[in-house]
Amino acid sequence: MSRVTARRKMLRITPAGQIHRPDSLAVEEPLELRLGGQSLTVTMRTPGSDIDLAHGFLLGENIIGSREDIVSARYCAGTDENGQNTYNVLDIELRTPTMVPARNFLTTSACGLCGKTALDEVRTHTRFPLPARGPIVDADVLATLPGELRARQTVFDATGGLHAAGLFTADGTALAVREDVGRHNAVDKVIGWALREDRIPAHDLVLIVSGRASFELVQKAVMAGIPVLGAVSAPSSLAVDLAADAGLTLAGFLRGDTMNIYTAAHRLKQASHTPATTTS
């Protein structure tokens, strides 16, 4: 398997002068997913947890609904200039053979379409509607999860160039954390892990992401039955619309002891209830 970091020469400019030295960078390589030998998609990812990534992607696109839907996933011949296997081609055999979808994927369904159409696409295809109530998550616990996620970003420490996603229990226990150059890939990797561990639908889990919350990430959470999504940065408008439509609790700007709750705040428990203020 390819390494997840690579060394490249660089020139560092500082007030004290210039330094020529190598720098550690996150590896970015293509991964082609095939179904029964037919090319399905190519994504740029950081090598590692590719099987989980494939499971998570196929679940998010409604191509599979459980781990039993996949009979095998194996690396095929894909060689570099030295004839070595790049491990960048993954062929998946489904229990029920299917034609390669000749359509836009759900994760890109917002492109060129109105927001309502994108929401309808997810509503129509999700196998795991979110529970009306649980889980109940303590707001103080939720506030600690970005720090717990960051503490497990080992490759980020070396490169500073990776996104991360993590699945946690409602009490804050970390179950799986994955890093990748693509935030959507990191989410696919942890959801794929959950699928292979028979934790889907993940009605009792919390998903935390290191960056912003896009429509695509909310869609992946909804398709996996994850009821709570927290992001270190901001959500997009369509992400909030989808979260509201699906009944998902969406928290943004999870930084320190503050956060913004955009939808389904009933799943959060606060130690003290202070009157809310409204500004225009």
Rank of each mutant, 00 (worst) to 15 (best):
S2Q: 13
S2I: 10
R8K: 13
I13C: 10
S24N: 13
E28P: 01
L33D: 00
G36D: 11
L40S: 03
R45V: 10
G56A: 03
L58F: 04
R74S: 12
C76N: 07
G78Q: 11
T79D: 05
N82P: 00
G83Q: 10
E93T: 15
M99E: 15
V100K: 07
L113H: 12
K116M: 12
T124H: 14
F128P: 00
A139P: 01
A143Q: 07
P146C: 03
R150A: 13
A158D: 13
T159P: 03
L162K: 02
G166K: 01
G166N: 05
T173W: 00
T173D: 08
A174S: 14
R183D: 11
D188F: 12
D188Q: 13
W193D: 01
L195V: 07
R199K: 14
V206Q: 03
L207Y: 02
L207H: 02
V209G: 01
S210F: 05
S214L: 11
Q219L: 14
P227K: 09
L229K: 01
L229D: 01
G230Y: 00
A231E: 06
A234V: 14
P235G: 05
P235K: 08
S237L: 11
L242D: 01
A243I: 11
A244C: 09
F253S: 12
L254A: 02
A276S: 13
